[in-house]
């Protein structure tokens, strides 16, 4: 038996994911526009740090590009009777484009719904919640250490890039040279980060981690679900029910 209750933000993520599978693409597209605006208008969804908000803005641009690419590639690859656009060897079929338009908002809506949760919630608090739900303390510590590892990785990459540049590698010359550099440093970088994680683990062990058998997880706090959680969950359920009904209709 678990004491875990879904928070309102997790429920919203669930709701948006449900929408991505149940609603027509035009509504999804409209919803997507709303979701992009949410961090700016809804205080609980505000990014927790300047870094988080930068990530969000970057992802908006990235998703525009991704969306366009999906539509274009589908248009190009799916053959159909109707041609929307033709230029030399480039032939875009209407069916392909429509399929692309159906797929792209779904993918982006799911991505944004997850991103929304992560930019507005310190990951630590997610892990805290996991601990409250009865996850063993050891697991929680390992998760936190892994998290530290992931959190510091971009900084490490940047520092090694700077060091490579200082020794004559044209890192900033193009995206390709950055990518090439990233590929070459990735495995040594993981190795060095891993060896540091091992040292950090040793240090924790020397401070009593896994030494004592006395440690017990803190008692779980009883929580009543937030009203927003209930609403989001109900709407999700209704959507699924509606979808099933539509599907069952002869």
């Amino acid at each position: 038996m678990t004491n875990y209750h879904l928070g309102p933000k997790s429920a919203l993520t669930l709701l948006l994911t449900t929408c991505a599978f149940t609603l027509p693409w035009k509504i999804q597209l409209a919803l997507l526009c709303l979701v992009v605006l949410l961090p700016f208008i809804a205080p609980p969804l505000r990014p927790i740090s300047p870094k988080a908000s930068r990530t969000f803005l970057k992802f908006i641009w990235f998703s525009c590009t991704l969306g366009a690419v999906i539509v274009f590639v589908n248009g190009l690859l799916i053959r159909g009777d109707e041609i929307t656009y033709e230029f030399g060897p480039i032939v875009l079929s209407t069916e392909g484009i429509v399929f692309g338009l159906q797929t792209a908002p779904r993918l982006l809506l799911i991505s944004f719904s997850i991103l929304l949760l992560f930019i507005s919630t310190p990951i630590r608090s997610i892990i805290d919640r996991l601990q409250e739900s009865g996850l063993p303390r050891t697991m929680v510590m390992v998760l936190l250490l892994a998290l530290y590892f992931v959190e510091t990785l971009p900084d490490r990459i940047e520092r090694i890039f700077v060091a490579q540049e200082a020794r004559g590698a044209p890192i900033r010359a193009s995206l390709l040279s950055r990518l090439k550099a990233l590929v070459t440093i990735l495995s040594p970088l993981l190795l060095s980060s891993l060896s540091e994680s091992v040292e950090r683990g040793t240090a924790l062990e020397l401070r009593g981690f896994l030494v004592s058998t006395l440690s017990v997880p803190p008692p779980a706090r009883a929580r009543t679900p937030h009203i927003a959680t209930i609403v989001f969950l109900c709407v999700s359920l209704l959507l699924v029910a509606y979808r099933i009904l539509v599907w069952l209709r002869p």
Binding site: R156, A163, E165, G168, P170, R172, S192, E196
Partner: peptide
Amino acid sequence: NSVASLARKICVTFQNPADQIFAP
């Protein structure tokens, strides 16, 4: 001038080896 082009003239080494060692 870019850092890479200045590197022909001046090479800066940082304090922490972990920040700059990357080769196998």
